[in-house]
Amino acid sequence: MKRCFILGQPNSGKTLFMINLAEYCGLSSLELLVTDSLGEMKTLSLCFEDARKDLVDPFPHRTLSLQHATVPLKKGKIKISIQMVDTVGLSDSLDHPEPVRLGMAHTLKQIRSADIVVHIIDAPRAAVDLDVPAFVDLELARYASCKCPYLVLANKMDLPRASEGLAKIKATFPSSTVLPISALKKRGFREVKAHLLRFI
């Protein structure tokens, strides 16, 4: 099974994207395999309501470990599943508490095993913040695009000024595919799914 890493800055909506994509693809509950930098491993089984409540909040760095979920992309005669890996937000600042730094290092280490990379960027923030897309976004794009299939998702398109942000993101990554989505409203998921299927 191919492994698709969901990467991006903290609070760009990676976890919510994974949860809602899993629901969109017709799973009835979320089975998560959680691994952290110390090698601890545990499995979580949650219904989608709880997952959104427990795993997502409006502050950055909610996720401090890697969360793997198997998502069926295609049903019927030929079944195709993909392992989505939700990761710790990557950022350039150095003053994070230790768990965040360990989590980032763990994420960076595991990136090497990615078959596909999905890069999520907060579109409305890109419109107002000069520093978004940041250095880490640019480097991520460079690293991932020469390594494996790579997709940029401009998230939070349901918020005001998001389309300005989308234009900026498209201008920053002219050679990559940029898809507008809203992880919250599950918009744009059909295109994401189609692209993922094409990569497999």
Partner: peptide
């Protein structure tokens, strides 16, 4: 990265 000496962007650049 774990010690907070470099950020994720720089780490990615070095890895690349």
């Amino acid at each position: 990265v774990e010690n907070g000496t470099i950020g994720a962007g720089q780490a990615l650049s070095l890895m690349r």
